[in-house]
Nucleic acid binder design. Sequence first.
DNA 1: CTGAAAGCGCTAACAA
DNA 2: TTGTTAGCGCTTTCAG
Lengths: 368, 368
Amino acid sequence: MKKNRRGIHLIAELADVSIGTVDRALHGRAGINESTRQRILQIAQQIAYTPNLAARALSASKTGARIGVCMPREIRFFYDQLWSGVLDEARLVAQLGVQMVYRPVQTLGVEDAEAFKELAQSGVNGIILTAGNPQGLKPLIDDAEEKGIRVVCVSTDAPESRRSSIVCVEPSLNGRLAGELMGKFVPSGSQVAVVAGMLRAEDHRQKTAGFSEAFPRHCPGGKIAGVIEGHEDEDESFQKTFDLLGRVPTLAGLYVNTVNCLPVCRALGARGLAGKIKLITTDLFAEMSPYFEAGTITASIYQQPHRQGQMAVRLMADNLTGRLPFPPIVHLSPGLVMSSNLHLFREIRHADLKFDDSVLSAGVSSKP
Amino acid sequence: MKKNRRGIHLIAELADVSIGTVDRALHGRAGINESTRQRILQIAQQIAYTPNLAARALSASKTGARIGVCMPREIRFFYDQLWSGVLDEARLVAQLGVQMVYRPVQTLGVEDAEAFKELAQSGVNGIILTAGNPQGLKPLIDDAEEKGIRVVCVSTDAPESRRSSIVCVEPSLNGRLAGELMGKFVPSGSQVAVVAGMLRAEDHRQKTAGFSEAFPRHCPGGKIAGVIEGHEDEDESFQKTFDLLGRVPTLAGLYVNTVNCLPVCRALGARGLAGKIKLITTDLFAEMSPYFEAGTITASIYQQPHRQGQMAVRLMADNLTGRLPFPPIVHLSPGLVMSSNLHLFREIRHADLKFDDSVLSAGVSSKP
DNA sequence: CTGAAAGCGCTAACAA
DNA sequence: TTGTTAGCGCTTTCAG
């Protein structure tokens, strides 16, 4: 009474060996006689063997990877989207038996060391991290990697550390692209200026540097008339911009490399220069929409937060469950937002998306 | 020593029943006390239970969902990337027990009706399709949907049909974005022209229309000096562009809305106008790279083929396995390629990526 | 009404 | 070098 075998069992029966041997043959594993391997491969070929992927996934899912996530909740504009990308992808990989552990911190760089340490000790296999203060985090990251906990940075890097990978839009590229665009938007010999948050922040420094390098290359005779620091303060940003506009009446363009662009828009309005001076901003949120429509903002460099979140989870899950190696770096290309395509961005489409706390409580309560 | 249970076993443990009972509760099967069912559902809710689809597929041994794919292999530039997006995502969903069936056609719109019909009869649950000739495909699509086979169009739509969803970059948006950009690149009152493939093609018509509508809005006094049809022929494109450049010496910009931009670049070179006239192209492939670096191409509108492929598979898999409803339309925002970010695009990074036939026959994992 | 147990096809650890 | 076996999480059948 022969059973109706399938897959490797069928091959095993035909080759008169055990399924273990068949497995070794098919996967080129060590410890098998070359001649029997050939015989088995032959047979596999003949019956056009295809592995049952569901079975493979099921069997391999023994590992039951757990991924910890440590990212800020503020500023909502950007991090809401980053979280939502993470959660979206988590929904998918959850079906592969991957579990997520969320440890949000309130603000970028604040108390993230504690959160990270907690995660590292909670028995996760990998951690996705927005590295607010790289120096402080570096030893912890190195420590985790030492113990076999893979760390993937997202959006903000800890370049000196031994993290397995980084997913981000290179800040300097953000600046260079803005510079190239600006160089094409304004006439030769134009003067332009940069509005940064705080130049102490590595991110803003690099964006500014990238812009300063690229703009003159693309605008013959073009010059950077000044760099303002708004320190993420509404009034300070407005006032400094307003003053600059008075001081440099020939200004042709403005590049804002922090998310905090509304005061700049208002200053342009107050001077009656909205639409006259080319304004390139960074990131995107609903309140910017009217300024696009009015022509105040010419373009914005979009950093794809949702996608960054997705990719970080995907990378981690692929590595943990499928043993795919980490790419050392994933540099996304920034997107371009202009009035034509504005409506397609999720930030504009569901402006009132709320950060849903319920998703963040993952643990199973042990109450019966 | 409690075991590390998962899934229905976990629920069974928490509810102090057997997995059989849990199964009955979860599936609304008969033969279970209503109160225990409620208790079980309650617990399932609390631990946010999601069934392991691989296990389900394996157990039921009914192959999970099967997704058919019917897309062209030519022109490589674009469709290589589309395929690669599909294959990438297929790798993931394979682990959920989803199987793929590939039926590539050689050229867009040629013999796709046959391929589609074949797929529809092969017992797939969904078909991903690049609808080359919408009219011919419409009845087949409607028929498939009638039978419960969901159809998702990708890149090229069959808008009149009953397909469940479409993933694409709207052609008219492509044109509008190009028009807006061009309007900012050239001075007021400039004359610009459009190089299309063939205006009979809906795609090219819409791109041209979008451009023609947007450009004057963003360039006061700007005018479209002409629209050329290159019919995807190298010589014709070159000659017509060359002639145009002679005829309209004041031309300030050129928008190429077909992938076939190299002849245009050459014509600009031949007239000594490379870099003088702003050139906005469509799509991206390795041979364009030097023209970016030389400044001949100012920018290209990128249609994200890889992402389109990914999203189509993702949508289909989400629907088939998780019963998530299809969004009727997924309009991606086109990307912008300029010299600054050129290097980040996969088309440039692995220029010599080959369409690997082996992937089309699911295989045995290779030797180390 | 509920529990126990046998697989689905594959991987991996352990024996022989 | 090869065979055996214990699961992976779910469905299903057969006893209680």
